Amino acid sequence: MYSIEDRTVEVETRIGAAPARVWTLASDISVPPRFSGELLETGWLDGADGPRVGARFAGRNRNGYMGEWTTTSEVVEVDEPRTFAWDVLLPDGRRVAAWRFDLRAEDGGTVLRLSMRVGPDRSPVDDTYESDPEKGPRLVGKRLRMLEGGMRATVEGIRGLAEA
C-alpha cells in the first residue's frame, strides 16, 4: 500500500517462523539486495559490523528511470526482535527517507512489515512533486509504486528464507 498524500509505502507478510529467526534476516543489510530489484548491494561503513543505533551503511541502487546511485543510511532504532529502522541521508546530512522493519509475534509465527516514508527533511521526491503541478504527483506516485514492488519482493524473500 502506498499513499502519495503522506508519501509512505508499507508492505506486510505473515511468516511461519519465530520472530528471532525473522529478526536475524530483517536486520541483516545483505538480505534485501537479494530480492529488491533496485538495491544492488549494501555494506557497513566506519567499522560497523551490525545493526546498532548510529551505525552507518552504504547502498548501491539502480533502476531504468533514475540510473545508478549510492546512498548512505544511519541506523536510528534497534529493538531486537521488534524493530530495525534507518534513515537515508544526503551528503549534506538531510534525512530524506525513513525506512523500518517491524516484527510482531502472531499465532506461532511473525508478521513482518516493511515501511518507508519520504522525509522528514526536503528530498528529491519533494522537488519532483513540486516541479510540475500536473506531472509531479503522477511521477511521485509511480516512484512509490516502484518502491512498493521492491519492498514486497523483499518481505516475501525474507519469508521464503525464514520458512526454509
Rank of each mutant, 00 (worst) to 15 (best):
T128K: 14
D121P: 07
L89W: 07
L90S: 15
D92T: 15
T70C: 02
V111T: 11
A98R: 01
D132V: 08
V88T: 15
G67S: 00
P120A: 14
D126Y: 05
A97P: 02
E134L: 13
D126H: 14
T72K: 01
R113P: 04
T72R: 04
V140I: 10
R94W: 06
D127Y: 06
K135Y: 11
R113L: 06
V125C: 08
K142I: 15
R104H: 06
P91L: 08
G141H: 10
R138T: 12
S73M: 11
P137D: 11
L103S: 00
D107K: 07
E134R: 08
D79G: 12
P91D: 10
R138W: 10
D92Y: 13
R94S: 13
V140K: 06
G136Q: 12
T70P: 00
T83C: 08
E130R: 10
G93F: 09
E130N: 11
F84W: 01
E68Q: 14
V88D: 08
G136R: 07
G64M: 00
S123T: 12
D107A: 15
R117F: 10
E80L: 03
T72F: 01
A105P: 01
D127M: 06
L90P: 10
V76A: 07
G108W: 04
R113C: 04
E74G: 05
W69M: 14
V76L: 04
M116S: 03
D107E: 15
L114F: 04
M116Q: 03
L139A: 11
M146G: 08
Y129A: 04
S115D: 05
Y129K: 00
V76S: 10
E68R: 14
E74Y: 03
L114R: 00
R100Q: 15
S131T: 13
L114I: 01
D121V: 10
V125F: 11
D79Y: 10
K135S: 14
D121M: 11
R82Q: 10
S123L: 07
F101S: 02
G136H: 08
G119C: 13
F101P: 00
T71K: 00
L139M: 14
V96I: 14
S73D: 12
D87L: 05
M116Y: 02
E130V: 14
R122Y: 01
V96C: 04
E80M: 04
R113N: 07
S115P: 03
T70L: 03
G141W: 06
V118I: 14
L139H: 06
